[in-house]
Design a protein around this nucleic acid. Structure first.
Length: 829
DNA sequence: CTAGGGTTAG
């Protein structure tokens, strides 16, 4: 087995493809720089002693409180007057505008939409308004009201009447930043260009405004390019320019390295970073799992004597929570209170969401109570958060109560509110509610967006409501929204789940042709479908495909009219393997990086293969993706236990870094595959290793075995191990507990609600061994037996023998299987 | 120039 290749086991999300080669060893570029302090990883978030302990290699600070002035330049409320669909409301701190400007604003707002009227209002105020202060105020306030075209009109009016270039420049940067905040990047760019051409836009301020406009639209490359242009045109960037650029990196998901380089460039040009520089750099860590980097930066701030503020802490909380570091997040919250920076609704909703994502629902809900107790009013984000938690749990009464509370407090429901409800009700098959909610959404004039439609289409497809799916899709098309990778992936997955693997492969082609890049999720859906399909396919898809324009609608039409063709099972199987091999080929062509879900999917597909030969084709794909995972799977399958185990252990170490459900899914897949091909002893070794590492949380005691998170192969291997353990208790002469039970669950954790495959497998295994365990009448997910009966069974001469598992193949391998995983002769396809 | 929200695979 080749183990020189670095492991590529990741749970990398699709958008991280091609950006981060491995997720689990984030490179801390920032720490490589000489002037940065290196606290050890996992340093508690505490401020190191200041003064004497300051790292001498830091550039000296110009003053002890370099940004005092900035702090007091205006009140920094964290409340927004109204949050636009894009950007935030700008507070006007140093209100230098006149009363007349406020009157003008009133009149202008009333004139909204009427260009002539707006012009006459401006004319009537022309002589009363006082230069940049008044017009700047107007521009900002119009921006806060989303009146961007009026803001432009107002800007043009003002600039025409201003002769001084510097004043014109100020107006230009004001309007550019207003447009940037509203996401109107094209308009901002146009105004910038015009103002440069007219000779007043060539200022650091105008450049900085446009850079930050690019930042808000996630256009980091454009921001950096503009920054270079600015330097070339002889303008010196200032601290704000640098900060805006770092901000741009965070907002567009750029590498930390990139932001860190800008930060260093700033230092080498003699600028002292301020709190905003650090806050912006911290934000770059979020979403990338750079928790340790973030902590280092936080400590570095202290060393520089920059006190953290609520933004710093909230950003730090975000980095912690998005990386699943919930306990540190609670520590940070506690520290905030001691620093008298009280957690606000942003802090709480960040942590609440983090808890919920890590499955710590009790903690999430008790934080909500804590929030209420602390008199922090829940805002729209907090409510939507809370409601999504309930909806995803199927606790609909509570979700709807949150909606009522929102209505009572006068917080408008938005598209996020509705999407969460539609998704929750849809996943539970409450189609009546889904229809009602979608209707209500329309009557309340909350416009559906791409996500709404993706959710609805997927819900209807999975529920077999093809007519509804078709109608919703048509409505989506009429609305002029563009399909994206998620919409396609949802449809592909739904089709796969219904057994239409080939049709979904057609959609994969179609989306690629349309320029929508499939991602690892799209591919994983299809791989997961391998070997699970029904014996039907959608008919007549190739016919009349002249336009080639929209296969989705054709598929939906065929489904709605029940135009299915029955495919003979063996031919379906052949087609399917060709199809899935084609999918693998495309993954390689498009350089889509597989992740651990892909590997689990391949292993599960192997478990559905009826022949070793078929499985070997899939394992070959696994080999091409990841030699380490392949080496372990293949080695255990071939019975090379001794040689492989050390590699297996290091693989398990990596798996343990994933979240618990990802980890258990991988163990389940690997064990199932081994069990399926008769390597039952190997399967048991894997399962015991998983138990040792607490992959399934709480698996056994002397009286109880909990299998409910395990796959059927893993569960059966575990049953043997547990019973052997019980057996040794009996043979050592100890008494067994009076009642012994095995929990299998009843399909709650199965993909198919109510599916009891696990229970059936375990029940069959136990009865085949003549065990006394029987389904409990009080709990269908539990098998029970009185302890003495188990002991009696154990003492039967045959029982211990039955309990010991063997591998069908042990090293040295039997000749029949020696070509597994090599690139052997293909099947006759 | 700085902070929190919704989506797809298992």
């Amino acid at each position: 087995m080749a183990s020189s290749t670095p492991p590529t086991l990741t749970t990398t999300k699709p958008y991280q493809n091609h950006r981060i080669p491995t997720l689990h060893h984030p490179t801390n570029h920032h720490n490589n720089h000489h002037h940065h302090h290196h606290p050890p990883p996992h340093t508690p978030i505490t401020k190191p002693p200041s003064g004497s302990h300051r790292n001498p290699s830091f550039t000296p600070l110009t003053s002890s409180k370099p940004n005092l002035a900035a702090d007091f330049s205006g009140r920094r409320s964290t409340r927004f007057v109204s949050k636009m669909h894009f950007g935030r409301v700008k507070q006007n701190g140093s209100s230098r505008h006149s009363i007349q400007a406020e009157q003008a604003l009133q009149e202008l707002v009333k004139a909204s939409g009427d260009e002539k009227l707006i012009n006459s209002v401006l004319m009537s105020f022309e002589n009363k308004l006082c230069g940049c202060d008044d017009y700047g105020f107007l521009l900002r306030e119009l921006g806060n009201r989303n009146e961007y075209s009026m803001a432009i009109q107002c800007f043009e009016f003002a600039v025409d009447r201003e002769r001084r270039k510097t004043e014109q420049g100020k107006l230009a940067s004001s309007v550019i930043s207003v447009l940037g905040r509203l996401g109107k990047i094209e308009l901002a760019k146009k105004i910038f260009e015009t103002s440069v051409n007219h000779g007043y836009g060539n200022t650091v301020y105008a450049y900085s405004s446009l850079i930050s406009a690019y930042a808000k639209s996630g256009l980091c490359d454009d921001a950096i390019k503009l920054f270079e242009t600015m330097k070339l045109s002889g303008l010196k960037p200032n601290l704000v320019t640098y900060n805006a650029l770092i901000d741009a990196c965070g907002k567009s998901g750029a590498d930390f390295k990139r932001a860190s380089d800008i930060f260093d460039d700033m230092l080498s040009n003699g600028f002292q970073p301020d709190r905003i520089s650090y806050n912006s750099l911290l934000a770059v860590c979020s979403g990338k799992g750079l928790w340790e980097t973030a902590m280092n930066l936080f400590n570095e701030m202290s060393y520089r004597g920059i006190d953290p503020d609520i933004y710093t802490y909230n950003t730090l909380l975000d980095v912690a929570c998005s990386g699943g570091h919930i306990d540190p997040a609670f520590q940070i919250m506690a520290e905030m209170a001691t620093k008298n920076i009280m957690p606000n609704e942003v802090s709480y909703s960040t942590v609440i969401r983090g808890c919920a994502k890590s499955g710590r629902l009790d903690q999430a809900l008790s934080l909500v109570n804590e929030m209420k107790y602390a008199n922090i009013r829940l805002d729209r984000v907090s409510y939507n958060n809370l409601l999504a938690i309930y909806a995803s749990l199927g606790r609909f009464d509570e979700a709807l109560n949150v909606v009522k509370e929102m209505e009572k407090t006068g917080i408008r429901k938005d598209v996020v509110t509705y999407n969460a409800l539609l998704d929750g009700f849809g996943k539970q098959g409450r189609y009546d509610k889904v229809k009602e909610l979608f209707h209500r959404m329309k009557s309340e004039r909350v416009p559906a967006n791409l996500l709404t439609y993706s959710t609805l289409i997927s819900v209807y497809l999975k529920g077999g409501m093809y007519q509804e799916a078709k109608e919703v899709y048509k409505e989506f098309k009429c609305g002029g929204l563009k399909a994206d990778v998620v919409l396609y992936s949802e449809i592909i997955d739904s089709l796969c789940k219904k057994g239409f693997v080939e049709s979904s492969a057609l959609l994969l082609d179609e989306m690629t042709k349309k320029g929508i890049q499939p991602n690892v999720v799209t591919y994983n859906s299809i791989i997961n479908a391998f070997g699970q399909s029904a014996n039907h396919e959608i008919g007549c898809l190739e016919n009349g495909d002249n336009k080639g324009d929209d296969r989705i609608i054709k598929i939906f039409e065929q489904l709605a009219s029940n135009n299915l063709s029955i495919v003979e099972r063996s031919s379906k199987g052949r087609k399917e393997i060709i199809c899935v091999l084609g999918v693998f080929r495309k993954m390689h062509e498009m350089e889509i990086k597989p992740n651990v879900v892909t590997f689990s999917a391949i292993l599960n597909a192997c478990s559905r293969c009826s022949s070793f030969e078929e499985a070997s084709l899939l394992l070959e794909e696994l080999r091409l993706f990841d030699n380490q995972v392949y080496g372990v799977a293949h080695g255990l399958l071939m019975g090379h236990r001794e040689n492989v185990w050390v590699h297996a252990l290091s693989l398990f170490d990596e798996v343990k870094r994933m979240d618990s459900s990802t980890a258990s899914a991988f163990y389940n897949a690997l064990t199932d595959m081994l069990w399926h091909f008769g390597q039952k002893r190997g399967a048991q070794l894997v399962v015991l290793e998983g138990k040792r590492r607490q992959v399934w949380e709480n698996t056994w005691s002397d009286s109880c075995l909990d299998l409910h998170l395990m796959s059927s192969g893993a569960a059966r291997a575990m049953v043997h191990a547990w019973l052997l353990n019980i057996c040794s208790i009996v043979y050592e002469g100890h008494e067994l507990p009076s009642l012994m039970s095995i929990l299998t669950g009843w399909g709650k954790h199965s993909k198919i609600v109510g599916d009891c495959a696990l229970k059936r497998a375990v029940e069959a295994l136990l009865s085949s061994m003549g065990s006394p365990f029987r389904i409990a009448t009080s709990n269908i997910g539990r098998l029970i037996s009185p302890g003495p009966m188990v002991a009696a069974w154990m003492r039967e001469s045959n029982t211990p023998k039955l309990l010991v598992l063997q591998d069908d193949r042990a090293y040295p391998q039997t000749p029949r299987f020696n070509n597994i995983g090599q690139n052997m002769q293909p099947l006759s396809l």
